[in-house]
Design a protein around this nucleic acid. Structure first.
Lengths: 324, 324
DNA sequence: AGCAAAGAGGTCAATTCATGTCCTCAATCC
DNA sequence: GGATTGAGGACATGAATTGACCTCTTTGCT
C-alpha cells in the first residue's frame, strides 16, 4: 500500500476507536512499529492532535484539535448524516437551512449510488412534521440545484406551476433561497429571457449539461428580496390572530417560535391576557396550539379558523358523547 | 509539503468546487501539471472517481464513486451536521437513532472546542418538536456515553431519579438503547454491584477516567430487552384506540407511522371504517390527528381522551360562538 | 479545416523519501 | 525493580517522487 493510502487508513482507524495500542495499529497497516510511529508523527505534523499513552496498556487516540480532520464515514453513518441534513435543510432546525444544504450538497455529490438509493428510501418513509411542513423536497433535486448554482452550470427541468401544465425550462441558476419553510430557485429563464423564481418542490427532471455559463447580474438587491417580491403578489395565506386569557408564557410554551405572543392588557375578570400572531398556510397547526393551551381564547382572525373550530368542536362533542 | 498532505489538500479542493482546471490545481498545490496528473492518478488508484474534461476549458471533478471519500468539512458544515444528527438521534427520524448517534459521536469527538460551543449554542435554541419529544438530551453527554460504551471506559456521573436526590454513580457502561423517543444507558453499577438502566436525560456531570474495564455479561437477551423489562414495571402510558368512519388511507395520511391503522368492517350506513391504535404518553398528538382527519370517529379507549375531547370541544365552541 | 488549449501518459535522471533494523531513553503500571 | 510501551536518533538500502521533455488525443473556437 502506498504511503498516502496508509495515512488515510490510519486516520480512519483512529476515528473508529478511542484507544489503539501501537502494536495493533502497526499490524493492521502491515508495517513495523517504528514506521507506525513515523506515520503518527506525520499526522501530528499535519496538525492532527494524536495523543499517546505510554506504558503498559498504552496506545494512541485522536483528540479534538484545532481543525476537523477529514471525516471517514461508514456507509450507514453517511446515510444518517444525509437524512439528518435533509431534515435540517427542510427547516426543522431554523436558521441552519443554508449551511445544512451546503453540507448536504457536498455529501450527496460524493455519495455512491447505492448509498443515495438508501437515503432516498429512508427519506420517503420519514414522517413529515405533523404540522405540515408542506410538500417534501427531494434531496437529490435540491442538491443538484445547489451545485449548479455554485458552479454556474445551466439547468433544464420541468416545472409544474400550480394548476398548470408542466413546462420545460432552460435556465441559468442563480441562487437558492429559503423562505418560510420553502425553497425557491432564482434563475434566468433562457427562453423567456427574464428572471424567474421557481418553487423547488415543483421542479422535476433536473438535468445539468456540464457546461458553464457567464453569470448575469440579478436586478434586485439580492435573491431573497427578489423571491419575496414575487411572492408578495401571490394569494395570501392566513394571518392568524388569537387572544388568550392567560399569561404569555403558557401560550409561548406550546407554540414556541412559530408564533409571536405578546401580552395585552387583561379585561375585567381576567388574570392576564396575550395575543398570538401566526402566519400560516394551513389551519391544522394553530388548532393544535389552541387545543393544547389550556386557556380560554377568542379568534380575531381569520373567519375560516372560527369555522374550522366550530366543525372540530362538533365532531369532538359527538365523539365524546356517552352514546357514541 | 509532503505527498500525503498534498493528496489530502487535493481531495479537499476537489470537494469545494465542481470543476477545477488542472493548471489552477497545480498552482495551488505548487507542483507542475505533470505531478498533478500523477496525483490525480493516485487518487484514482485509491478508488476515487475523478472525472476529467479534456480540451479547452477542461478540468477535473470528483464524481460519486464506489465509496465515500474522506469528507473535508468547513466549520459551519460540521456544525450543521452535528445539529442535524442530534435531531435525528433524538428520534425525529425514526429508525436512524443508533446510526445517527454513532456518526454524531464520531463528529463530536473530533470537533474542536470552538465548534462544539457553537453546536451547543445552536442546539439549545432549536425548537423541540411541537408534540413534545420529551426532555432534550445533551449531545455531549450522549456522545460521551456512546464513546465510553464503545471503548469500555468506566464512567462516573450524577443521576437524578425522579423525585429523588441526585446520587453519584460509578459505572461500567454497556450499551445505549433508544426506546420510545428516549435514550437509556445500560450499565453495571459498581457500588450497587448490579445492572441498572439509566435515563440519559437524567444523567449529568459525566466523567470518563480514561481507563478501561473488562466487559461483563449482561443477564438478559440484549440491552433492549433489559431496558424494556425495567420499564414495563413503570406506570403505563395511554393506549389510544379510535374507530373512524372513513377509509384507512385518510387516517394514515395524517398520523403516518406513529399509529397503526387497520381497516375494519363498516357498520350500516358507513362507506368504510378503520381502527387507529396509538401508544402515547400525552394526549396532544392523538387529538391533533383526530382534528385533522375530516371524519367521524368514536373513542374506544381511553376514557381520558374522551374527557379531553369534551373539554376541547367546549372551549372551541365557546371561542367560535358569534358573541365571542 | 485548422489551430490552440488542456488532459493522458511514456521515459529518464536526479533526488528525495520511506523503511526496517538497532539502539537508547522516558513514562507508566504492577 | 522489571516489564511494557511510546519517542526518537542513526544508518543503509531501495523505492518512490519529481520535473523536464516528448507525443498523442480530445475539444472548442475561428
Amino acid at each position: 500500500m502506498s504511503t498516502s493510502a496508509r495515512m488515510l487508513q490510519l486516520l480512519s482507524l483512529l476515528q473508529t476507536h478511542r484507544y489503539w495500542p501501537g502494536g495493533e495499529l502497526a499490524a493492521r497497516l502491515e508495517v513495523t512499529p517504528r514506521t507506525l510511529r513515523r506515520d503518527i508523527e506525520r499526522l501530528r505534523d499535519l496538525g492532527y492532535a494524536v495523543d499517546a499513552v505510554r506504558g503498559v496498556a498504552g496506545g494512541y487516540q485522536l483528540q479534538p484539535g484545532g481543525s476537523l480532520p477529514p471525516l471517514l464515514l461508514e456507509d450507514d453513518e453517511a446515510v444518517a448524516i444525509a437524512v439528518g441534513l435533509q431534515n435540517a435543510a427542510a427547516g426543522v432546525v431554523a436558521g441552519l437551512e443554508d449551511t445544512s444544504l451546503q453540507a448536504l450538497t457536498k455529501v450527496v455529490a460524493l455519495m455512491p449510488p447505492k448509498l443515495r438509493r438508501r437515503m432516498e428510501a429512508l427519506t420517503s418513509q420519514t414522517e413529515p412534521a405533523p404540522w405540515g411542513r408542506g410538500p417534501t423536497i427531494d434531496a437529490e433535486v435540491l442538491t443538484t440545484l445547489a451545485q449548479a448554482c455554485r458552479d454556474h452550470e445551466p439547468l433544464t427541468f420541468t416545472y409544474t406551476a400550480r394548476a398548470a401544465e408542466p413546462t420545460h425550462r432552460r435556465t441559468e441558476p442563480h441562487r437558492l433561497v429559503t423562505l418560510g419553510r420553502r425553497w425557491y430557485l432564482v434563475a434566468w429563464d433562457r427562453d423567456r429571457e427574464d428572471w424567474r423564481s421557481f418553487r423547488v418542490d415543483r421542479i422535476a427532471d433536473v438535468r445539468t449539461s456540464g457546461q458553464r455559463f457567464r453569470v448575469r447580474e440579478l436586478p434586485a438587491a439580492d435573491a431573497l428580496t427578489f423571491v419575496r417580491e414575487g411572492i408578495s403578489r401571490m394569494p395570501q395565506r392566513y394571518a392568524v390572530r388569537v387572544r388568550f386569557a392567560c399569561p404569555t408564557e403558557q401560550v409561548s410554551a406550546t407554540v414556541g417560535r412559530w408564533a409571536t405572543v405578546e401580552p395585552v392588557t387583561p379585561r375585567a375578570g381576567e388574570e392576564a391576557a396575550c395575543l398570538m400572531t401566526m402566519p400560516t398556510e394551513t389551519l391544522d397547526w394553530p388548532m393544535f396550539a389552541l387545543a393544547n393551551t389550556d386557556a380560554e381564547f377568542t379568534v380575531e382572525e381569520p373567519a375560516e379558523l372560527r369555522e374550522a373550530l366550530a366543525r372540530v368542536a362538533e365532531r369532538f362533542s359527538r365523539a365524546a358523547a356517552p352514546g357514541a
